[in-house]
Design a binder for these strands. Structure first.
Lengths: 240, 240
DNA sequence: CGATAGTTTGATATCCTTCAAAACCTGTGG
DNA sequence: CCACAGGTTTTGAAGGATATCAAACTATCG
């Protein structure tokens, strides 16, 4: 299978075969992990950069009283924390939402790449800047939209991001996220998430079966969500 | 007055006088601006990096139907978007919450600093990483806490951040944020913000007069907010 | 000193939560 | 290959936090 990070970065700028080969070599150390395991825990000292090759993960924080907030989804092609070595301790955890294959990239390889590969370096900066833009958009989502729009908006974003790495097939993608997870990302109870998903299905906006999510009419879902993909900065891509 | 950026960065690592002088020279082009003006608008092509020297600003986004979400506060010492030149267009705006003095730093000066001043470069990376951590914590705040805790948490954060740049005097700081602004940052109506502020005052947690906010008992406010300053990564500082 | 922006108050509506239980999957082990 | 276990989804009823609307009050600034 082709490297999902390369696929993603090509949405920013073209890469040479040489660049792509460098990215492949980054993934020398790929391992399989089971769902629900933590890749890093809150308080850990960061030792490597993780690259998700297959499966889904999330950043999350647990409050003292047990409430959980998910702050990002990581899908294939996503790196976590290119710069992380500057900080002494993780202020949040990264956990797996599904079984996954994950590459661990040591600091020195990362530094070397940034120093010797300006095109790739720029593309990686682009990807961290858009990660941040996604975070900002999630804040808008929770802060301003009601439950129905919130879920719709998140699904639109995931559709675009998975499209970038070629993981949307026939308008559908694998969706290993429980309604409880959705609640913890959107600041809603699982019960209410359930009712809103029913409404989305009822209105023909999504179909959900056996862990795959189908969006029959993407523009329609985008319009109910007031989704505007600008924040993903896909200038160099057909998806926009 | 001493450069607030230098003050801030010293919470990460000690700086030499030489380093501080470099930072001072960055602020060659400082201008006064009036409250409510935008420093940059959504869709603009970024041309300079802004450094807030005096006053407050915020990042915000306006939805098509007029709802506004504030996604960050910028206080003295805060830079916006060190890396911004990689992106073609701003996906959000930066507006002033008060009259302010702002330095505009051209791209080449910024690049030069990163290439010739490794200590400062590391400190600036630290500051952008903590900006991101703040954004994540805001998501936790809106997603998981109720209105009362949300406001309390935000005020604790501002207390710490302003303390870092020496702007807390006698337990109080200037607070030019309207209740409407607060509503737009916390996903609440101004009416409800008003009632929660009354409750905070009623319980003796804050005092608010003539645009200054006093926190008589910081640990107590932190405890009602479940505030834990870890996410600000103040390892090298007394504030923690 | 008037105009404008910001704060405060009250009454009513609603979205979302809470609690509790039933139904439904999915994977695992016998 | 079936049966069971645990997690996940679904349903219903009732309560609570926050929104909405509208108006009065109070600062602030030119």
């Amino acid at each position: 299978m082709t490297n999902p990070l390369a696929a993603k970065l090509r949405n920013f700028a073209p890469l040479t075969d040489d660049d792509a080969a460098v990215l492949d070599r980054l993934c020398a150390d790929v391992r399989g992990h089971r769902a629900k395991r933590d890749l890093i825990k809150q308080g850990d000292r960061p030792e490597v950069v993780f690259l998700l090759v297959e499966g889904w993960a999330c950043r999350y924080k647990i409050l003292p009283d047990g409430r959980r907030q998910i702050m990002a989804y990581l899908v294939p092609g996503d790196l976590c924390d290119v710069q992380i070595f500057i900080l002494k301790r993780m202020d949040h955890a990264i956990g797996l939402l599904s079984n996954a294959r994950v590459a661990a990239i040591p600091e020195n390889k990362m530094v070397e790449l940034f120093e010797t590969r300006p095109t790739l370096a720029r593309a990686l900066w682009w990807s961290t800047l858009t990660d941040e833009a996604v975070l900002r958009e999630w804040l808008v989502n929770i802060g301003q939209r009601d439950a129905f729009e919130r879920i719709a908006h998140l699904l639109c974003e995931l559709w675009v991001r998975l499209k970038m790495v070629g993981m949307v097939k026939g308008g559908a993608f694998a969706f290993p996220v429980t309604q409880s997870d959705l609640g913890d990302t959107l600041g809603l109870t699982p019960v209410h998430v359930n009712r809103m998903l029913q409404r989305l299905r009822g209105e023909g906006l999504i179909e959900l079966k056996q862990g795959r999510l189908l969006i029959p009419d993407v523009p329609r879902l985008m319009s109910v969500a007031q989704f505007d993909s600008n924040y993903l900065h896909l200038d160099g891509s057909e998806i926009g």
